[in-house]
Design a protein around this nucleic acid. Structure first.
Lengths: 230, 230
DNA sequence: TAGTGGTCTAGACCACGGC
DNA sequence: CCGTGGTCTAGACCACTAG
């Protein structure tokens, strides 16, 4: 026999796809499978755990392992730096800082973070990202200076805000929100499109271990596509 | 001591976040860590493997384990059925089949799948999805009848195309593409918005084990947001 | 070629949770 | 209660690859 855990996983997946193990049905327990396949129980465990993480199986102590009824597949989106997005397309990356001011977070940003007015000391930075010297996206960002004091002195011409924060402000979690909105007059001017043109907007909230770190609103130039793989 | 693998993972993550292990630096090998933490090497292996899968560590045989320089976090998007999206918001789900015809895939769809004309026998279905009896999204779909012959006789009034395919057409992989485009006259009429209004478009290609299964273009009503968690 | 992570094993004990 | 998956261990061999 000699089955490695990937072989066991493949065999189990084959039985799931071929419906030899029907959706919702109980499959043999680890010990039995190990004997049948001629390997240790730990090997079967590793394989079935992998399939459970991928959503193919539901495992519960005592209840056993069942084939998931509605396999809820997850799409994964790698969150690349804007530089990487642009360079991956073979274009040259650039950025221009348009605005950089000490400025408290506006009420709608405070509300998103569930913070009371007037909020923490903050810095606002507006950045235009360029691909081959053409506008790629317009970013408006507020950074919580209480959480990242050193941002006040960051050299943002050398390192764009996106990269600076990734390097200096380790974060715990956050949310991404994509939506489609018409371009404002300012966005249209900066991105070189008609006012009202549909833009993909990415809003991002980032939290550190304890406190909010930054809110960002990124307006992509028209034609931007977000791709996810399943 | 008595460290479980989750304790080892937490301790390692603490050292990464506190920069006790600096970005890019080599960390101790598994055997040394096991001795230091008072557990078996397999336990350390399990913990470090988990951190590597989450993107915190880069591991290579012989070269050792390093802290990832630019931790590339991945956002995960659970792909729920449209019904679940709507019901999760406390609204009632409904759908109406607008078009259902035997109709070959148009050239741009064949091109996406890299198929030569005239392509496989196919069925086109246009569906309007409703949330609380208001338009939620307009779907245009082609299904490859060679890959899923039984789709020709599916009762799509009982089960919307989305759910029918999830239940009957096990798939291997696919892509999701989000973009922002102006509403066409037809979309505006069906979705109850102004022509030219910005719409979030989801295009989805789904492949079975061997052949393409379906291409779908879903136009969301204005205001739709796509949220991902990190 | 030597050092590192990757994996397998046999056995053990534990935690959960149907019954 | 007691069957199931979850985990740990000590040891072993292997696969890859940097030097």
């Amino acid at each position: 026999m000699s089955m490695g855990w990937q072989d066991v996983r493949d065999e189990a997946l084959r039985r799931i796809r071929s419906r030899a193990w029907e959706p919702g049905a109980l499959i043999p327990n680890e010990a039995d499978l190990a004997q049948e396949l001629g390997c240790a129980r730990a090997t079967v465990n590793r394989a079935l755990r992998a399939l459970a993480e991928e959503g193919w199986l539901d495992r519960r102590r005592k209840a056993g392992t069942r084939v998931t009824l509605a396999p809820q597949r997850r799409a994964q989106l790698a969150i690349p730096l804007i530089r990487q997005q642009i360079e991956a397309r073979g274009q040259s990356f650039g950025h221009r800082i348009l605005i950089r001011t000490a400025e408290p977070m506006p009420p709608h940003v405070l509300a998103l973070f569930d913070l009371p007015a007037p909020g923490p000391a903050a810095m606002r930075v507006q950045t235009l990202y360029l691909a081959d010297d053409r506008a790629f996206a317009l970013e408006d960002r507020w950074v919580n200076l209480d959480a990242v004091p050193s941002f006040a002195g960051a050299d943002l011409d050398a390192l764009c805000p996106n990269e600076w924060l990734v390097r200096h402000a380790p974060f715990a979690h956050g949310t991404l929100d994509y939506s489609a909105v018409p371009a404002s007059a300012e966005e249209a001017a900066q991105l070189g499109c008609a006012p009202g043109a549909p833009l993909m907007i990415l809003e991002r909230r980032t939290y550190g271990p304890a406190a909010p770190v930054t809110y960002m609103r990124l307006a992509h130039a028209p034609g931007h596509r977000l791709r996810l793989e399943i």
